[in-house]
């Protein structure tokens, strides 16, 4: 088990290196730091000194990959790649445009993000799996047909509609919850409940349909036919046999996103003014704060890879046949 874990972690390193190189190429080679300085300072009427100052302040004055002017190890370390990209591996993300430390910002913003994303995720799965099981139980009936039709209609609605419409209806017309904002401690629930509800509803269409397909594929397997032949009631087949066996395909899709929950939801957080990582990212994109976007890309891929490893482990929990060498 431990060797397996170590091997998986070793696999992750080249991938993260690839992500790192890709973002480096995207942010520093497509556009030189000079271009970025000109962009930040305004395209026209910008002096060479202003650009040089801007670069000096942010450490962009160094060469990209190789510094020939210094000696020894500093040839590799005194470069933009090392100071800006490679240091992300040890959790040093540098400072944002407003001078704040990105790593600290991320730590404080994780909790609000999680407070929205985790309930949305858990309730969303519970609701979708229940409904999908229900539809699969009544498969090939009218109920199933209209259920699937409704699911397709729900998934054809833009996610923005759910958010804008939900916020308008419940916060502005019915005045049930505050329109936006966030509170500390227990008070937070008033701000959390609407985003979570909207998040669950907006995901329901696609999820129900997806789980229903998984369940239906399972119903055609031999062990189900065998169970039926033994005379087991349909309910027992569904809850005791089918649900358990359908866990593997469900887990593949579900577990991988768990670590990414820390990242929060871009749309939900910015619409409801929640001070999480999602709104942080959106603000950074709008302010063209490249260091923050770069940091978020890196963290996002770390969490995704973590999710892949977690997925593998979750298989051992539901399927005793799977063992790691």
């Amino acid at each position: 088990m431990l060797t397996y874990l170590l091997r998986r972690l070793a696999y992750a390193i080249p991938i993260l290196l690839g992500v790192n190189l890709l973002t480096f190429a995207l942010f520093f080679m497509v556009n030189t730091p000079d271009d970025m300085a000109r962009m930040q300072l305004g395209v026209k009427r910008v002096t060479a000194e202003a650009i040089e100052n801007w670069k000096q302040e942010r450490g962009y004055h160094l060469p990209l990959l190789w510094n020939g002017q210094t000696g020894g190890l500093e040839k590799a370390t005194q470069t933009i790649f090392f100071t800006k990209s490679a240091r992300m591996f040890i959790g040093d993300f540098g400072a944002a445009e407003d001078g704040r430390d990105i790593a600290r910002e991320i730590r404080t913003r994780m909790m609000p993000s999680l407070l929205i994303a985790l309930p949305t995720f858990l309730i969303g799965i519970a609701v979708a799996v229940t409904l999908a099981l229900f539809l699969a139980f009544f498969r090939a009936t009218r109920l199933d047909f209209w259920g699937v039709s409704l699911a397709v209609a729900l998934m054809s609605i833009s996610g923005l509609f759910y958010i804008i419409g939900g916020q308008y209806l419940f916060a502005k017309i019915l005045l049930l919850v505050p329109i936006s904002g966030f509170g500390d401690g227990l008070d937070a629930w008033r701000f959390v409940i609407l985003p979570v509800a909207i998040g669950v509803v907006s995901g329901i269409g696609a999820n129900v349909r997806w789980y229903r397909t998984i369940f239906l594929e399972e119903t055609n397997k031999e062990y189900i036919r065998a169970a039926r032949a033994r005379g087991l009631p349909e309910t027992a087949i569904f809850f005791r046999h089918l649900l358990k066996n359908a866990m593997i395909p469900i887990l593949t899709g579900v577990v991988v996103v768990i670590p990414s929950l820390f990242m929060g939801s871009l749309l939900m957080e910015s619409f409801f003014g929640i001070p999480g990582l999602g709104s942080y990212t959106i603000d950074a994109i709008n302010a063209q704060d490249f260091s923050v976007v770069r940091a978020m890309v890196f963290i996002g891929s770390v969490l995704y890879i973590l999710g892949l490893i977690l997925t593998d482990f979750s298989y051992t929990l539901v399927d005793p046949r799977i063992r790691f060498a």
Partner: peptide, 20 residues
Amino acid sequence: VLNSIPGVLLIAAAVLMMQV
């Protein structure tokens, strides 16, 4: 590598660069 970067962020990074 491409898959491990969250889609919106990768698009955001690329579009920001294109804007520059």
